[in-house]
Amino acid sequence: MTILKSLLAMLLPLLVFLPMEDLSAQGKILLADARPRPPEIVADDRTGLITGPIVVILNEAAASLGYQVQWRIAPFPRTLEDMKNGITDLVPGVFKSDERAMFMEFLGPIGVESHPVLFLTRAGQEQQIKAYDDLKKMKIGVKRGTLYFPQFDLDKTMHRVGAHDDHNMVKMLIAGRFDVMIVNDKEAALAALTPAENARVAWSEYQASRSLARYYGMSKFSRHKLLAPALSNSLRDMVKRGRVAEIYRDFGLSFKNYQ
């Protein structure tokens, strides 16, 4: 009996301690949303698998602080709403804006992105856009919640037609729902086109340009919001050490658009 009591005395603290450890581990899960942005973010709706350098960078930064990232595929407008409610903790690849700053902390940045903003039209209409002011005569397809370049983003005279993603946008363009589709990411737009659709569209000669710092966004209403400064420092340290560029190379990609 004495031996049994001794064993119980030893086991009881363990029985209490193990569930507490499990709860502690569950508390170190960060919920992040991603939408397909190949080749940097590749998301498979069928399997739910999300890969790419942008994903790996955040996973490593979180792991350095003892956290794990749980990823979900979601359209960007839904992500923004869920961040306002603290449902989603993090979102990769965002640019600063006053509107987003009301509910989002900006972590990083991992670099400054500089490349052209393109305009896709139906085949045969590409010559209609030779300058910025030509856009004022058109209906312009945009992705909801996306920033393009300052002149356009602040221009209230433009006739915008919103869409959730590139796949919807190209179909709306071909169907005549708008005249031109504004494109930040040419690779993502091309991936959304079928061979038959590709023959029905064309790129305008006119291009705009942007140069914006690129961040990870963290909800100000996240239960992990106090982690934001440490996570931001971890991301900047990865840039300084060359780890971000190395991760891009691991995926066969160049980090040349960042400085």
Rank of each mutant, 00 (worst) to 15 (best):
E40K: 07
V117W: 10
F76V: 05
V56W: 03
R78A: 12
L30R: 04
P92M: 11
G86D: 13
E40Y: 14
N85H: 08
F76Y: 15
K84E: 15
R46Y: 05
W71Q: 08
M102H: 12
F76T: 09
T51Y: 03
P92W: 12
L65E: 07
Q68H: 13
L58G: 04
F95E: 14
A62R: 00
V55A: 02
F106A: 06
I87V: 09
T88C: 02
A43K: 04
V117C: 05
W71D: 12
R46V: 11
L107Y: 05
N85A: 07
P36G: 05
L58V: 13
M83E: 14
I73P: 00
I110M: 14
K84L: 09
P77E: 04
T79G: 13
V91L: 07
T79E: 08
L120Y: 03
T79C: 06
F119K: 00
I29S: 07
V94P: 01
P39A: 07
S64H: 02
P77I: 01
R72N: 10
P38M: 09
G93M: 12
Q70R: 13
A34D: 11
I87R: 13
T88G: 02
G27P: 02
T51D: 08
G108C: 06
E99H: 08
S114R: 11
F103W: 14
I73E: 06
R78H: 07
L90M: 13
P77S: 02
P116Q: 15
I50T: 05
A61E: 09
M104A: 09
P92N: 13
V69P: 09
V117Y: 07
V91A: 11
T79D: 08
I50L: 09
Q26N: 10
I54D: 15
E113C: 01
S114E: 15
D44N: 15
G108D: 06
P53L: 12
N59S: 11
V112G: 03
R72W: 03
A61D: 10
E113T: 02
I50P: 07
P75Y: 02
P38K: 09
E113K: 05
L118T: 06
G48D: 05
Q26L: 15
A43S: 13
P109R: 07
L31W: 03
F76Q: 13
Q70C: 00
H115K: 13
V94S: 01
H115F: 13
F106K: 08
F119V: 04
I57G: 05
M83K: 05
K96Q: 06
F103H: 13
P116M: 09
E113N: 09
L49M: 10
E105P: 00
A62K: 00
V94T: 02
L49K: 15
L65A: 06
V91H: 11
G111H: 08
I29N: 08
R35D: 15
D98W: 02
T79I: 05
F119M: 05
L58I: 14
F106Q: 10
W71F: 10
G48M: 02
L58P: 00
L120A: 06
S97R: 01
D98S: 11
I50A: 11
S64I: 01
V117L: 14
F103T: 07
M83G: 06
R72I: 03
P75Q: 04
E60F: 01
A43G: 08
A74S: 10
T88F: 02
P39E: 08
N59C: 07
R35H: 12
R46P: 00
G86L: 09
G111T: 06
E40R: 11
A63L: 13
V42L: 10
F76L: 09
D89Q: 03
